[in-house]
């Protein structure tokens, strides 16, 4: 082999990796320790996730067992309240009826329940972290690399520890989705607050605003466009992640897609895929229209 190595010593040619035995030992040790820790804490973990489990089940049941006409009316009412646009409401109605017609109503409701909870969680978690990152450079230096890892690590990879710790089911699925969906909320909250006009902030300061008053009177309202983009992105991320999360036992449209992949059910895959796209578009248009309506004062520019 030395001849194929441009006359260099072997060590420069064939990477001197650690030998297979020690690698195996390392993996076994880490996995074993991790499993043991999880096992010894399993009671506490189950107790902690039980309320989440109950809440998720209840919400899912609320979505699936309510008569479809009531759910449809509610969805349309929410879309109207958010967007105030008949076009978006009509589009939503058509999409929802088509979903029902193709027999995907129940699965769609399961997915909808999951996405709503995950988005709400991601916003509740992401907003304060984003605010903290905006307030202190040190905090930002800590948070940014963590977010980088969260966003680049393949989602399948962190499903593994989630499954090891929480097992299979809705709660681990939800945790995976929230981890995946929260980074844009944090990043855009941070960015939005940092980009707030320094002069307006100085004015608030000059009139004696406390930190809290500055946050509520100036920073959050002026960062609203970025915050709304963050919510929008979070919804989109959650929607794409529920499909992946179906691998750990989350039901709904994602499960059908997974089944279609495994069995090469072309039509089933596309029908479910389009149902997800339809929900995504409904969420996206409604939240964007809502965001724009909140900033109407900007549109009325004088010159």
């Amino acid at each position: 082999m030395a001849s194929a190595c441009w006359g260099l010593p072997d060590a420069f040619c064939q990477f001197p990796a650690m030998d297979g035995k020690s690698l195996l030992l390392m993996r076994r040790t880490i996995d074993g320790t991790f499993r043991d820790i999880v096992r010894s804490w399993s009671g506490a973990i189950d107790a902690a996730t039980a309320p989440l489990q109950i809440a998720l089940n209840a919400l899912e049941r609320a979505f699936t067992s309510t008569p479809w006409i009531v759910v449809l009316a509610l969805v349309l009412a929410i879309v109207w309240a958010g967007s105030r646009s008949w076009r978006i409401v009509a589009g939503t109605a058509v999409a929802m009826l088509a979903i029902g017609w193709f027999g995907l109503w129940r699965d769609t409701m399961v997915t909808l329940a999951m996405v709503s909870v995950c988005t709400a969680m991601a916003v509740v978690i992401g907003l304060p972290i984003g605010i903290a990152a905006a307030r202190s450079d040190r905090m930002q230096r800590v948070i940014n690399p963590v977010l980088d890892v969260m966003q680049t690590l393949p989602s399948f990879v962190y499903l593994i520890p989630v499954v090891v710790i929480f097992g299979i089911g809705k709660v681990p699925g939800m945790i995976a989705v929230v981890i995946y969906a929260v980074p844009p909320m944090i990043r855009l909250t941070n960015l939005g607050i940092r980009l707030v006009d320094a002069q307006v902030l100085e004015a608030a300061e000059a009139f004696g605003s406390s930190g809290r008053q500055k946050l509520w009177n100036v920073q959050l309202p002026l960062a609203l466009p970025a915050l709304m983009t963050g919510v929008n992105q979070t919804i989109m991320m959650a929607l794409s992640m529920v499909v992946v999360a179906s691998m750990v036992g989350v039901g709904g449209l994602g499960k059908n897609v997974l089944q279609a992949i495994n069995n090469q059910f072309f039509t089933l895959g596309f029908l479910n895929g389009f149902a997800l796209v339809a929900i995504a578009i409904i969420f996206d248009r409604t939240s964007q229209a809502f965001g724009q309506r909140l900033q109407q004062y900007r549109g009325a520019a004088h010159d």
């Binding site: 002069q199 307006v200 004015a203 009177n217 609203l224 004062y297």
Partner: peptide, 8 residues
């Protein structure tokens, strides 16, 4: 100088 009013 640049007024620094709250736009909202």
């Amino acid at each position: 100088q640049k007024f620094a009013l709250l736009p909202h």
